[in-house]
Each structure stands twice: as structure tokens, then as C-alpha cells.
Design a protein around this nucleic acid. Structure first.
Length: 211
DNA sequence: CTCACGATTAGA
DNA sequence: CTAATCGTGAGA
């Protein structure tokens, strides 16, 4: 058998739900990338939910369908596939597409606590000091884990790039805050769709507001 | 075709 | 605080 039971990729059904639920439940899961250079993996400590056509912060906001020509096309299919896009002309961001076909939602993975392949992560990032900074942001974790736009559309139920069970996170250890850097989204900018493991030293920022 | 700007980061 | 850097999407 290719995987030990505890290390199997999460199944499709996990992803076929709304972004807020999946975003919250991805905290504590392990993100694994088996690349030619080696394996890297770590525990997710920060996510953001993007809830589709009605969410002004979401890339699929007011879009109607996949045209075959837009970066968001993958979001219109079923959950459990990778949506990776270039931000600010410099960095890639890794998202998990969620929900059913034609419900274009996604969860942005914003920070990870490195577990495996820390030296490889350091080499990719060009730093040698504390692992706390290796994956403390959506751009940084893509560099550290070797995730690029070539992974756009990858099936996360496969064996190269996937999520699997990690640690149980008590709901009392989770905080929900507004999402980072979505000021352009008007009212949606204040929705509490960012989920963090409170007080984790591996987060992208120290911003906490609400419970 | 042009062009303003971004789900970021590192560095002054 | 700002520069870096380029794909995207809106508009002519």
C-alpha cells in the first residue's frame, strides 16, 4: 500500500464543503509536498476562506463560469484541487479549491509550522536561521515547499501534493479575524474569515482582533 | 491595444 | 515606510 493509514491524503468529500468550514478545519492538518528535491511538510497554522461569487475579496467575485481563459477557472470545478496564482508579480500563493462544481470557493494557506525537510526549506528560502520564519506567509511557504504555478490544477487527492491528518486543534485554540490585505473589498474586508492557531509563533502576522 | 494594481515580502 | 515586478482584467 502506498500510504500508511494515518498518512493518506484527505478524501474528496473533505473538500466538497463551504470555504469557512474547510478553512477552519484545515488548521492542524499537514501539508505534504513530495518533490524531486525531497519531501517537505508541515502543520497548517493559518488559513483564509474565500467564499465565491458574493465575496468581494474573492478572485471569483461576480464571475459566472469557467471560460478556459481565466486563472480562476479551476475554482469552478469540484474541491480538492490546487489554485496557485502569482501575486504582486513576484510570489505564488497556494489555495485549496473547495465546495461542489460551480461553487467557486477556495482556502488560502497562509502559514505552516515546518515539520519535515526544514533544511531543504531553508535552502529554497536562502536563510539558515529559525524555522519560525520559513513558512510564515503565503509567498514564503510556497517558496519553502517548492509550490509554484506549475501545480495549478493539481489533484490534492494524489500522492505528490496533498493534505493529511495532523493534530487535533481545540476550538478554544482557534481565533477568527478579518483577512489580511483585502482593504479593496469594502464590507467584505471585515468578515472574520481568517483562521489562526492562537499564539502560534509561526503565523504570518501578529494581528488578532475578535475571538 | 493600454494601464492601474494586487489574497506579498524584504529591507531602509 | 517603500521598491520590486508582471499577470490580470477592465476599458478604449
Amino acid at each position: 500500500m502506498r500510504f500508511k493509514k494515518a498518512n493518506r491524503p484527505l478524501e474528496r468529500d473533505f473538500y466538497l464543503r463551504d470555504a469557512v468550514s474547510v478553512g477552519r478545519e484545515l488548521l492542524g492538518k499537514r501539508l505534504v509536498h513530495r518533490s524531486a528535491a525531497g519531501e517537505t511538510d508541515g502543520i497548517i497554522v493559518e488559513t483564509e476562506a474565500y467564499t465565491g461569487r458574493d465575496d468581494a475579496a474573492c478572485h471569483s467575485y461576480r464571475r459566472e463560469k469557467a471560460t478556459g481563459k481565466h486563472r480562476t477557472d479551476i475554482m469552478f470545478g469540484p474541491g480538492g484541487f490546487a489554485y496557485v496564482y502569482l501575486i504582486y508579480g513576484m510570489y505564488d500563493c497556494f489555495n485549496v479549491v473547495v465546495n461542489e462544481t460551480d461553487r467557486p470557493e477556495a482556502v488560502l494557506i497562509r502559514a505552516i509550522r515546518p515539520l519535515v525537510g526544514i533544511e531543504l526549506m531553508g535552502r529554497r528560502r536562502g536563510i539558515s536561521d529559525a524555522p519560525k520564519k520559513l513558512c510564515s506567509g503565503p509567498g514564503k511557504l510556497c517558496i519553502a515547499m517548492g509550490i509554484t504555478r506549475e501545480h495549478y490544477g493539481q489533484d490534492l487527492c494524489g500522492s505528490e501534493l496533498f493534505l493529511t491528518e495532523g493534530e487535533k486543534i481545540a476550538s478554544s485554540a482557534v481565533s477568527a479575524t478579518p483577512r489580511i490585505n483585502v482593504d479593496y473589498a469594502g464590507e467584505a474586508a471585515s468578515y472574520p474569515y481568517r483562521f489562526v492557531i492562537r499564539d502560534s509563533p509561526y503565523l504570518s502576522t501578529k494581528k488578532f482582533l475578535e475571538e
